[in-house]
Design a protein around this nucleic acid. Structure first.
Length: 158
DNA sequence: GCCAACGTTGGC
DNA sequence: GCCAACGTTGGC
């Protein structure tokens, strides 16, 4: 994938028991570090593609109401995830070093919490969303979204 | 909480 | 560099 000048769209997954959109809403400046990503494909997106100004769907997984719960904007482009160097952290990685860091993070800022979740059930029923990465690669926690998918889901949310 | 799918690790 | 074993994700 080639980086273009225009903003790009992403979907970030989180288990709400771990970190929910309400946690983001209550964070200082409604901004949080999106860290702890420990999957190489997701890491590559974070490190190489996600840019400041890109738009993000906030997705709740492994919970009662699964789906997209709101939107955020990338407020800081990728930097090394400090938790990989902290032996106390669950995200510590002994194989990583300052010279060759393995893991990256970005900051996101809340832009909108949807009045109602756009549920996975809904997404599955809409033909325009058949090609979403979400539908094809269930386990990828950072994934690209097309402009058409972005618009379709935003329309559903209003 | 189960378990299928799939990513990662490590012995060979 | 293959692939079995293992660990994790995430919908149900």
């Amino acid at each position: 994938m080639v980086r273009t000048n225009s903003e790009q769209y992403w979907l970030f997954k989180s288990e709400p028991d771990c970190y929910s959109i309400d946690d983001l809403a209550q964070a200082p400046q409604q901004t949080a570090r999106w860290d702890g990503v420990r999957n190489f494909q997701a890491r590559n997106f974070l490190r190489d593609q996600v840019a400041a100004g890109d738009r993000v769907f906030f997705y709740h997984s492994r919970c009662k109401i699964i789906g997209i719960v709101g939107t955020a904007i990338v407020s800081r482009a990728s930097y090394t995830d400090p938790q990989q160097f902290d032996p106390q952290s669950p995200y510590f990685d002994a194989k990583s070093s300052a010279e060759a860091p393995r893991w990256f993070c970005v900051d996101i800022t809340l832009t909108k919490k949807f009045a109602q979740t756009v549920t996975l059930d809904q997404i599955k029923q809409i033909q325009a969303l058949d090609e979403m990465v979400l539908r094809k690669q269930g386990r990828l926690s950072i994934q690209p979204v097309t402009q058409r998918e972005w618009q379709t889901i935003n329309q559903l949310a209003t």
